[in-house]
Amino acid sequence: MKKVLLSAIAAVMFFSCQNEQNEESTNLDASAITHRGCATQEVFEAQLKADPALALKMNQIEAFTQNRILTNRLVNGKIEIPVIVNVLYRTAAQNISDAQIQSQIDVLNKDFNAQNSDYNSVPALFSGVKANVGITFVLEKINRKSTTKTSWGTNNAMKKTAQGGIAPTSPTTKLNMWSCAIGGGILGYAQFPGGSSSTDGVVIDSRYFGLSGSANAPFNLGRTGTHEVGHWMNLRHIWGDANCGSDLVSDTPTHNTANYGVPAYPHYSTCSGTPVEMTMNYMDYTDDNGMYMFSTGQKNRMAAIFASGGPRAAFGI
């Protein structure tokens, strides 16, 4: 297990993205995606370039997060997140049903409360750090809008009314999710705490939203939503978006890079100490049926953002 140092805070801003997808794609993929692609880090780096002041803000959030963890002053009580789902569709399949949307909320509630059926599949090596995050989600409203766009890319156009999208609803107190055709091999992306409220939230390709309807294997179990909401709650990719990088969590093993598919256990890292990788963690790139746990360190990191003074404190305790 690696030790997280506060000196790693500045390094957050310079993580290199190892996604293989092109965020500038303008055409929806014709074939099903076989490898998970999350554009959260790419979008974050673009935001840093557009707004240099964001780097300082993110450093401050990281310092606050680490202080909360080190001093053990974390949120006590239940956090309930109201969710707004914005559906942008060109085809009937993209106009996902209310039932499919609710299935995604149900998956979030199971995964963030250790009620997922595969939670007990966590290997004994990690049983001592597997965590019940204890955050619940409630679907509050669904907004729908027809569009002629074949794909939206990752420049947040789906969040802007002037560009044909749907603006977020009360983003400081509600989690906004967008279902649309992203394109470029991207399943979804999220905005870390600290970004502009006008673009805050989670985007998921309609083919990988929830359990039913247009959901496509091997990403048909709603875990793209779990992964992206993890980012929205300040979790990094488990490999730190760099070779043997840090995810700023103390109880996750150092991964040399992303894992795909469903790796056979144990899967050893090539990094120092050759630890067994936590490939079943929601913040890796494995298939939906290959990810089924958060760690205690990740739980503490997520809880910190909702504490008084944290970047999502407006959601309340």
Rank of each mutant, 00 (worst) to 15 (best):
K3I: 15
V4A: 04
L5P: 01
S7D: 13
I9T: 12
A11I: 02
C17I: 09
C17V: 10
E20Y: 09
E20A: 05
Q21D: 05
N22S: 07
N22I: 05
E23Y: 05
S25P: 01
T26D: 04
D29T: 03
H35R: 14
R36A: 14
A39W: 04
F44S: 11
D51R: 13
E62Q: 12
R68I: 00
I69M: 07
T71F: 08
T71I: 02
R73K: 13
L74K: 10
G77Q: 07
G77D: 06
I79Q: 09
I81E: 07
V83T: 07
I84F: 01
L88H: 05
A93F: 01
Q94I: 01
N95R: 15
S97D: 07
Q100M: 08
I105K: 12
D106Y: 06
N109P: 09
N109Y: 05
D111R: 15
D111A: 15
F112T: 05
N113P: 06
Q115W: 04
Y119P: 00
S121T: 12
S127D: 10
A131H: 04
V133R: 01
K141V: 12
I142S: 10
K149E: 14
G153T: 10
T154M: 09
N155I: 04
A157P: 02
M158F: 13
M158P: 01
K159R: 15
K160R: 14
G165H: 11
S170C: 04
T173M: 06
N176E: 10
C180M: 12
A181N: 08
G183V: 08
Y189S: 12
Q191G: 12
F192V: 11
G195C: 09
G195H: 12
S206V: 09
R207D: 00
G210I: 09
L211Y: 03
S214K: 00
N220S: 14
N220P: 01
N220E: 00
T224I: 15
T224L: 01
V229N: 00
V229T: 12
V229S: 00
G230V: 11
N234K: 08
N234Q: 13
W239H: 15
N243Y: 14
S246G: 04
D247K: 02
V249A: 02
N259I: 02
N259F: 02
Y260E: 02
Y265H: 00
P266A: 03
P266L: 01
Y268S: 05
S269G: 03
C271G: 07
G273L: 09
N281D: 14
Y282T: 08
T286F: 00
D287L: 00
S295W: 06
G297H: 05
Q298H: 05
R301P: 03
M302K: 11
R312Q: 13
G316P: 08
